[in-house]
Design a protein around this nucleic acid. Structure first.
Lengths: 171, 171
DNA sequence: TATTGTTATACTCTATAACTATA
DNA sequence: TATAGTTATAGAGTATAACAATA
């Protein structure tokens, strides 16, 4: 926040709150995540569920271990997440015939259908969040965010929220 | 995500992961929050701590109840957060002389000093996150994010992460 | 002996509800 | 009776470590 003003030197009013781009990013990122969570909750799903469905759809037949590595979470957490989706009939575990220790993960037909619904929800969500901007501004914003994400080393489509870090407020 | 492609119709490769602006926002927002958390951890503070320090600095002398309302959290949570900061000597609770039920909240001298350090950290954080962009692009991004934040009704400087919503992955 | 998936356990964060003191 | 702050408790989420089956 190179343009941030200091509190003690403002006699007229107290400390300004940060409005730098980094703060705006976390503020808007949390807001967008919250809104999306509300939307997919109507399907009985949580945002982590969605991430799993997407990842399995992208590369079907992989093991739970490999999925855990992709997402950057511990294997035991994948167990609990898959249990949920398996119980809902959205994901199937199939014992590998090559190595019977492995579970190959696949989306069920119903899982594929639900993921299609999620795509519709995501599109509506995008329109909602960006409703302040016209098409040109949306393209501009998307390009700038893409540049930042690439430079910061964020894997396309993998949400860093699967990682384990302290806190949660951010600036 | 109006430009999102469908998985089943891509024979060459499996489902693409979302790259719309809304997904980029949550991805980058979470990433920026994580990075900031790591930075302030060196001061022994968490991101929620920072938000409290900032809010108290902005409007000193207010009650815990009022602070809870500002941040959108339950009063009992403010108790725990202030306990932390009080124990570190950064915040002072003073019994109101007008209504002895109230605790007026103030930053200690040390608290003000630490908040100054946080401003430096926030500036370095901003430079880090935006290092992919030149000055013109940073201004452009900040303006676009400001438009979106205003339209979405986000209060300047108040982090929505203080709210209580399900999930955490977002799109 | 090493690896996959699982279970058992503990820890952190946060909300709800009951309680104390002041009004 | 109502309100400010506090304490006690419970629930969700997630990690670590021990375990069983398979290699």
């Amino acid at each position: 926040m190179s343009s941030e003003r200091q509190a003690a030197e403002e006699p007229g009013g107290p400390a300004p709150t940060p409005r730098g781009a980094a703060f705006l990013l976390t503020q808007l990122g949390t807001h967008a995540a919250d809104r999306f969570a509300v939307r997919v909750a109507e399907l009985g799903l949580t945002p982590p569920d969605i991430g799993l469905l997407r990842t399995i759809a992208t590369r079907p037949g992989r093991s739970q271990r490999a999925l855990a590595a992709d997402l950057g979470v511990v294997p035991s957490r994948v167990v609990a997440l898959i249990d949920r989706l398996d119980g809902k009939g959205l994901v199937e575990r199939r014992r590998s015939t090559e190595d019977r220790r492995n579970h190959e993960l696949y989306l069920s037909a119903e899982g594929g259908r639900v993921l299609g619904e999620v795509r519709g929800i995501a599109a509506a969500h995008e329109d909602d969040i960006l409703s302040a901007l016209d098409d040109g501004q949306r393209a501009e914003l998307t390009e700038l965010l893409g540049l930042v994400a690439a430079q910061q080393g964020l894997a396309p489509g993998i949400h860093p929220g699967y990682r384990n870090l302290p806190g949660g407020q951010g600036s």
